[in-house]
Design a protein around this nucleic acid. Structure first.
Length: 218
DNA sequence: TTCATGATAAGG
DNA sequence: CTTATCATGAAC
C-alpha cells in the first residue's frame, strides 16, 4: 500500500506578513511560514523561496531544538542567530557548501530558518554560468548547498541585514501562499519535528531524504 | 546506492 | 585527537 502523504504532514494557507512578524514570532514554525514564499534578491538575481526548514534555539531558550546549531550555546560561527531578526546566517556545510539562514526572534534569543530551495525568477544567465547549464533550471537552486552556489554566497555575507534596502542581499516578505509541512532533512536528532515547509507543486522542491543516522520510527 | 570531500565544534 | 554534522555530484 502506498499512502499519498505521511501522517506527519500538515497543510494550510498563511496570511500576509512583515518584518515585525519575524521579530515577534510565537514559535519556529511561524518563522518558517513567514519566510516561505518570499523573494530573495542578490545583485541581479531574484529567487522565490519554495522550501525552508525552521530551527529553534538554545537548550534554555523558548524553543529548545537539539538539531539547531545554536542548541549548545553561542559560538563564533552561530552568533548571528543570537542577534536581531532578519540577518543572514551563512555557514559552511560539510566543509564545502555554503548554506543560508534568516535569523528570527528578539535580540539575544537564537533562532534561524534555513533556505532549502528556490525558483529562479530573474538572472537565469548569471546562474546558468555558475551551475550545470545542461540541467533544467528548477534543479539549480534545489537543496541548500545548491541554493548558496546559485547566488555565490560566501562567509563574507554572514550577518547581512536582508531588510535593509541598501544591502546587496535582500528578502521581500508579504506573499500569501499555500504550504505543506513534514519532517526535516538530514538531522539525526528531533527528526520527527515537522518543521520542513514547502510550497506544493513547485518543481524546485528537493526530494525528502531522512538522515541515515536518525533513529527508525516504530 | 555509496563515496570523497574537509570546516567547525563538542567530547574524550 | 576523534567523532558528528542543517550536503552534493560523481562514481559505482
Amino acid at each position: 500500500m502506498r499512502l499519498g502523504r505521511p501522517m506527519s504532514q500538515r497543510r494550510g494557507h498563511n496570511r500576509r506578513v512583515s518584518i515585525e512578524t519575524l521579530e515577534n514570532v510565537e514559535n519556529p514554525l511561524e518563522a518558517g511560514l513567514t519566510i516561505l514564499g518570499s523573494t530573495l534578491t542578490v545583485d541581479d538575481i531574484s529567487l522565490r523561496i519554495v522550501e525552508v526548514e525552521a530551527y529553534g534555539g538554545e537548550k534554555d531558550g523558548p524553543w529548545p531544538d537539539p538539531a539547531a546549531h545554536s542548541y549548545r550555546g553561542r559560538t563564533p560561527r552561530n552568533s548571528v542567530m543570537f542577534g536581531r531578526a532578519g540577518r543572514l546566517y551563512v555557514y559552511r556545510s560539510y566543509g564545502m557548501h555554503f548554506c543560508m539562514n534568516i535569523s528570527y526572534g528578539p535580540d539575544g534569543v537564537a533562532g534561524g530558518v534555513l533556505l532549502r530551495a528556490a525558483e529562479i525568477e530573474a538572472g537565469h544567465d548569471v546562474v546558468s554560468a555558475r551551475r550545470s547549464p545542461d540541467r533544467p533550471s528548477h534543479q539549480w537552486a534545489r537543496g541548500p548547498g545548491n541554493l548558496g552556489a546559485s547566488v555565490a554566497i560566501t562567509l563574507a555575507d554572514n550577518g547581512t541585514d536582508v531588510f535593509n534596502p541598501a544591502s546587496r542581499i535582500r528578502l521581500e516578505l508579504g506573499e500569501s501562499k499555500e504550504w505543506v509541512s513534514g519532517p526535516r532533512v538530514g538531522v539525526s536528532t528531533a527528526a520527527e519535528v515537522p518543521w520542513r515547509l514547502w510550497i506544493p507543486d513547485s518543481r524546485a522542491v528537493s526530494a525528502y531524504r531522512r538522515s541515515p543516522r536518525a533513529p527508525v520510527i516504530s
